[in-house]
Design a protein around this nucleic acid. Structure first.
Lengths: 263, 263
DNA sequence: CGGTTCGTTGAGGCCCATCAATCTATGTGG
DNA sequence: CCACATAGATTGATGGGCCTCAACGAACCG
């Protein structure tokens, strides 16, 4: 699978903190019992360093690994026959890229790194076995799948019904929340994506992304300093982007009810 | 929840074929054991007739029922503050509208009927209990959630990177497949949606939907006769729509591997 | 220092939105 | 049976948001 990946696995595996799934958001799911969390942390994984712009999984090719992002940025994407690309998810530290591999042999999207990235992989067969043996793990999988669902629906609303400025503002708000980069009315975070990447997320051309970012800059809503995104007025940016963080389900207070007492 | 729904429940409940989940795609999932299938079919449900244009669930309101469509058309949708609507899923006979209710107390989308519709509801608490007690049912839920995921990703590609004609053609191809209305290179099925509904699915205005449909008609790719859609040349329509049915995962040959032997 | 990647700017045009009106089909009440 | 109302399809005119093509500037890097 990784013939085309320039790998530093051997070096990575010698790191002091032994590689494990504890570097991912997955093990922090409230659905897990202590035993289940431990099983996940003990699961054999492989840590790799990968360059930028590398396909980890290609569209329509079977994949035998689940891929987590530990550091750097990656994306899920689909392409049209004539070369158009649409990014359907941005993957940052802690994210699982191909949860669908737990159910489907063959994915209809690709996964590609956008920056140099550290990834963590676990065998698909083993992951499936874990979901079969531990109901809490299975439940966590379902939870994450449904959150992805909610995020995709929100992006659909943006793509179908929002202007370029609103889409951009919304995306920056979403990233600010997901990266937990918020500090009162301000926010700032490392932001290594190119304007072409942004265009492929938002369904625009890079040129128009550029012009729209200039507009937002002019309005004092965003600022960029050497690959860092600064949002000086979150409140106003949220209004422009019509952003309501609810769809991210980032604070799973709701899990109590989803976990029936009769188990 | 249904105060605003003009209901014929009492009449419906007296129907000869007693209402049960066997009218849904859910019970045909290959993940279910015989016992599990039986439990689903025995689960207490309520059958209702609902008029067109009725909100079954409103955005941001908690829902205590899972809603299946037995007959007619409905949709999941989201709206923008200034009145824009984006339909994120079309629901036809057999579909489950709010699978997310199994995990989230409060949904961030609404469900609305597009035609007079017969729906079937089951208590959310009871459904959650079923997924907790029967691993096959839980697995089926995860499967359906991931298929929805794949469909949403495909729609995102359409919204972000395809022309109006391609989007329309793609949608008709998808519906033709989902409704199992295909017959060689031709297809035809009841199609009660208005052009405004189509516009809200495709992220266009009704006027442009109208003009694009005229174009497709002129090309001999679609024909409509009193609320019936006729696709005289599926192959060419698929080429225009860049349609590949794979993403629908309609033929779950892959389930074998997703169901590990070590259980 | 030359090459490459990415950001920026300009000119021109098309796809689709907007506004407004007409036409048709269906249904309703007198 | 007809006058009327309503919803949806259709058509026209106009404009704007975004795309396309093309070039230039800036930052980075071996």
């Amino acid at each position: 699978m990784f013939e085309h990946v320039h790998s530093h696995a051997s070096a990575a595996l010698q790191r002091p903190p032994r590689a494990s799934l504890s570097a991912t958001r997955f093990v922090r799911s409230p659905f897990l019992s202590d035993e289940e969390r431990q099983r996940l942390e003990q699961a054999p994984v492989i840590l790799r360093s990968v360059g930028a712009g590398i396909d980890l999984v290609r569209q329509q090719e079977p994949g035998d690994l689940l891929i987590f992002v530990v550091e750097g940025w990656a994306c899920r994407y689909k392409t049209t026959p004539n070369g158009g690309r649409q990014i359907s998810a941005l993957l940052v530290a802690g994210d699982l890229g191909n949860i669908d591999a737990l159910m489907f042999d063959c994915l209809d999207f690709g996964i590609r790194t956008l920056t140099p990235t550290t990834i963590l992989t676990i065998s698909r067969e083993r992951a499936i076995a874990l979901t079969a043996d531990y109901t809490g793990i299975a439940r966590a999988v379902t939870w994450f799948a449904m959150v992805e669902n909610a995020v995709l629906s929100q992006w659909m609303l943006c793509l179908g019904r929002q202007s370029a400025a609103t889409r951009l503002a919304h995306l920056f708000c979403e990233l600010s929340t997901r990266l937990r980069a918020e500090d009162g009315n301000k926010s700032s975070f490392q932001f290594p994506l190119t304007q072409e990447d942004l265009a492929d997320v938002l369904g625009l051309t890079p040129i128009h992304v550029n012009r729209t970012m200039q507009y937002l800059r002019g309005e004092g809503l965003i600022r960029t300093e050497h690959r860092r995104m600064i949002l000086p007025d979150l409140e106003r940016l949220r209004r422009i982007g019509e952003f309501d963080p609810h769809y991210l389900h980032a604070h799973p207070k709701e899990i109590g009810r989803a976990r029936p007492t009769l188990v």
